[in-house]
Write a protein that binds this DNA or RNA. Structure first.
Lengths: 180, 180
DNA sequence: TGGCTATACATCGGTTGCGAGGTATCTTCC
DNA sequence: GGAAGATACCTCGCAACCGATGTATAGCCA
């Protein structure tokens, strides 16, 4: 199984974990989840479904369409359910560091029923956020917003810092409550 | 010219706008800018450089390496300089809505010397952020963090809201100061 | 009747992205 | 002298992504 699978596959597996859906409905859910930030083209979704079907992570049954054309109802196989849990338990580093991907992980993390496993994933994000990092450097020294003349670059740092702060607060609180 | 060019090309054009650089140095700068979130593989960078060279947006001259192998110093052509300004003036919607891409736009927005053009780009981001949007819906109604049982999904909304708030504050302040 | 919108799925061709691997030079340290 | 690590560039093959386009059904409105 590829290590660096896209977040689209993760979202498909995640939504189908709850209930079987047909592709069109799946697309609406994915669009609601991430569409305003990063839309999903149909020409990306349907091939992704085919990939997962070919890998036997999901199965397809045809039903007469409720409104129009016939639907292909997609159901996760036992292997597919296991694969989602695996991808959530051991996300590739990119799914930890890239906020878009990380949000997709978070959206389905509840499907891991072991709070320890959930906490381990949050810990990886925590470790990433606690690493000192900037977007701009003077040699090796990370620059602070106040040191920049460029108002736009200052904006990047200001926004990133607010995000990091809010997320650290939430992460620590959530880790605490998972602990108990 | 493609409308939906990647942010990698934008970063290359942006860094070279300031000064000619060789590929290896370019890679370090891009890694500093976005690498902790989304690393750049060399196998992505070098082909991207070739694409831009082929499109005559940059030119290459070979210099003996300062430390090791010979360097290919990359310089933007006049067309390349124009193309960067064009991409910054009229970014595709995806570069407005996707935070990773948006940050790349912001990182080089100072290269537009017309404050009105800069403000127009910020306005598009402002309009996007002011649209009511959630990640989760009950029918058409966007759900608030407090309405969710899932602590992880609640986290998504909490973090996103903090980011949006910080960015709105910064956007409005910056638009004000561009106005004067 | 004709046009619009929504439902529902799909392919084609082209671009982008990336892991794995390769080549070569120079410095540093053991 | 030899290995390690940084500098510096590159290709191959595959996977992912996406815009354009196509096919069909059904409801609604003018």
């Amino acid at each position: 199984m590829r290590q660096n699978a896209g977040m689209l596959e993760l979202a498909i597996l995640g939504f189908l974990y709850d209930a079987p859906l047909h592709g069109y409905e799946l697309r609406k859910r994915i669009t609601a989840l991430a569409g305003h930030v990063r839309p999903v083209a149909e020409s990306t979704l349907y091939p992704a479904i085919k990939r997962l079907e070919k890998a036997e992570l999901l199965a397809r049954t045809t039903e007469p369409g409720a409104v129009a054309a016939p639907r292909h109802v997609l159901t996760l196989t036992e292997e597919g359910r296991h694969e989602l849990r695996r991808r959530l338990t051991e996300p590739p580093q990119r799914n930890i560091t890239d906020e878009n991907r990380w949000f997709t992980v978070l959206a389905f993390l509840r499907h891991l029923d072991d709070p320890t496993a959930q906490a381990a994933v949050l810990q990886r994000r925590l470790a990433f956020l606690e690493e000192p990092a900037s977007f701009f450097y003077d040699g090796d020294r990370p620059l602070h917003a106040e040191e920049l003349d460029d108002p736009f670059r200052r904006g990047i740092l200001t926004i990133a810092r607010a995000t990091t702060r809010a997320e650290l607060t939430w992460l620590r609180a959530t880790l605490d409550s998972l602990d108990s």
